[in-house]
């Protein structure tokens, strides 16, 4: 099978999934249930995405997920104190890169 045809089909499904909620409720009239979930679901999804990002750590073998734990803690602390998105991300990322390149080799 031609791989370009496969890419097109996979793209079609992906686009369909992204469009689906908008097509289902396109007259703009949202059921109360959906409207309410729209306020609370983003916080749930965001913490799930954080877990998704660190899903491959193993706390029982070396390095015990320590680089991730330390770097995430730094982002949280800096962000609580400074509330500056770029600063938190920059310092967290530098710390993480340093840890996995030089400390937990």
């Amino acid at each position: 099978m031609n791989e370009y045809v496969v890419i097109l089909l996979v793209s079609f499904i992906t686009i369909f999934l992204r469009f689906l909620p908008f097509m289902l409720f396109k007259n703009g009239k949202l059921p109360k249930t959906i409207e309410k979930i729209g306020d609370s679901l983003p916080s749930t999804i965001m913490i799930l995405l954080v877990i998704y990002c660190v899903k491959n750590i193993n706390i029982f073998t070396y390095n015990y997920g320590l680089p991730e734990l330390i770097a995430v803690s730094i982002v949280v602390l800096i962000h609580l104190y400074k509330r500056n998105m770029l600063l938190s991300i920059f310092l967290g990322t530098i710390t993480y890169m340093f840890l996995i390149q030089y400390v937990f080799i």
Binding site: M46, V50, C53, A71, V75, H79, S88, Y96
Partner: peptide, 13 residues
């Protein structure tokens, strides 16, 4: 890790 950090900072916000 920049993207993990982005998600973490958004969670804090």
């Amino acid at each position: 890790f920049a993207m993990t950090a982005l998600f973490v900072a958004i969670v804090v916000d």
